[in-house]
């Protein structure tokens, strides 16, 4: 392992993370809900009519964020190396996996750990390990 000092962004990442924490705290305190994106979006299926509005509004906020961002400054860098077939397989795995796991990086990784949930800790360690293993295999064994 070598630390990638050129791409390391400690301050913006820490500040961005704190904003995520503020948003998660606000959604709990104001709406009484967990800021878990897979739960909010996946829960639209089969949701009662009165339970759909806030879910769609939250997703609308996520979609609008980069638009609002570019009103004030240049769009931040974003690079997607995955091929189209990889994106399709990855999307299916993320969609099905997060629903069976009952959460993703936000629901388990941020909110669950902040609530000191043992179940979320196990989920987070498991998906992190799978993520590390997948990148290791694709970059260092398969030679991509």
């Amino acid at each position: 392992m070598a630390i990638d000092w050129t791409n390391f962004t400690p301050w913006s990442s820490l500040t961005g993370g704190m904003l995520l924490g503020v948003a998660a705290a606000m959604l709990a305190l104001l709406n009484g809900r967990i800021a878990g994106i897979s739960g909010i979006a996946g829960g639209l299926l089969g949701a009662k009519s009165g339970d759909k509005g806030w879910r769609l509004a939250f997703i609308g906020g996520l979609l609008a964020a980069p638009v609002a961002w570019t009103l004030f400054s240049a769009a931040p860098a974003s690079k997607i190396d995955a091929t189209i077939p990889e994106l399709i397989i990855a999307g299916l795995l993320v969609g099905v996996g997060t629903r069976y796991a009952g959460g993703c990086t936000s629901g388990h990784g941020v909110c669950g750990l902040a609530r000191l949930s043992g179940r979320s800790l196990v989920a987070t360690l498991t998906f992190m390990a799978a993520g590390f293993a997948t990148v290791f295999i694709s970059r260092h064994l398969a030679g991509q």
Binding site: A65, S78, L87, G97, S106, A123
Partner: peptide, 25 residues
């Protein structure tokens, strides 16, 4: 579920929240 999710996350570099944000971009 977490194993499947982590595999997809590692493959594409996307989890659900950032996917919506990048889509909005």
């Amino acid at each position: 579920g977490s194993l499947a999710f982590g595999t997809g996350w590692g493959l594409a570099g996307f989890c659900p929240g950032p996917a919506f944000v990048a889509l909005g971009g």
